[in-house]
Computed example of a mutant assay.
Amino acid sequence: MRSVRPTSVRLLAVLVSLGLLVGALLPGLVRRAGGEVPVLSWGPALLLSIAAGIVGVVAFSTWKSVHRERQRVNADRALFHLALAHASSRVGALFLGAYAGFALAYLDAFETVNGRDRVVHGGAAALAAALLLAAGLLMERACRLPADDDEDDEDDDGSRSKARPTPT
Rank of each mutant, 00 (worst) to 15 (best):
L107G: 14
G35C: 02
A52F: 13
A45K: 03
V73P: 03
L25N: 09
L11G: 04
A105M: 04
V73S: 08
A45S: 12
V9C: 06
F60L: 13
G43H: 02
A129E: 04
D117R: 15
G53H: 09
Q71H: 11
A24S: 14
V22L: 09
R31H: 13
S8C: 09
D108R: 06
L12V: 06
I50C: 03
V16C: 04
L96F: 15
A129W: 00
V91D: 02
L131K: 06
R5P: 02
A109R: 13
L21D: 07
L48F: 09
W42H: 15
T7S: 10
V16M: 06
P6T: 09
R77D: 15
L40Q: 01
V14F: 00
D117N: 15
V30T: 06
V120Q: 01
R68K: 11
A135W: 00
G23R: 09
G43P: 01
T62V: 07
V58M: 11
V4F: 12
S61K: 08
Y106L: 02
A33S: 12
G101T: 13
G43C: 04
A125R: 00
R116F: 01
A45Q: 07
R90L: 11
H86D: 12
A103M: 13
R72G: 12
L133W: 04
L47N: 03
N114L: 14
G34N: 05
H81A: 13
A45F: 06
F102I: 02
A59D: 04
L46D: 12
R77K: 08
A78S: 07
A85N: 12
L96V: 04
G43F: 05
E36R: 10
L11F: 00
V37G: 01
A51F: 14
L15E: 10
L11V: 07
Y106N: 10
L26I: 00
Y99F: 13
L84Y: 06
P6H: 01
S41I: 04
V113K: 11
A128M: 02
E36G: 01
F102V: 05
L94H: 07
L26N: 07
V22T: 04
L133A: 04
V58I: 14
L131Q: 06
E36A: 03
E69V: 03
A109H: 08
R10C: 11
I54A: 09
A24G: 03
L82P: 05
A33I: 06
G43I: 07
V4D: 10
G115R: 00
L40Y: 01
V39R: 13
G92A: 07
Y106I: 06
A93I: 08
G19C: 08
H121W: 10
S41Y: 04
L82V: 11
E36Q: 14
A93K: 05
L11D: 02
W42L: 15
A105I: 00
F80M: 15
L26R: 15
R70P: 01
A130K: 00
A125T: 01
R68L: 14
G122L: 02
L25M: 06
L127P: 00
N74K: 01
I50P: 01
F110W: 10
A125Y: 01
L12R: 05
V9R: 11
L96A: 15
A45M: 11
R90P: 00
L21E: 07
H81L: 14
F80S: 14
A33H: 07
G43K: 13
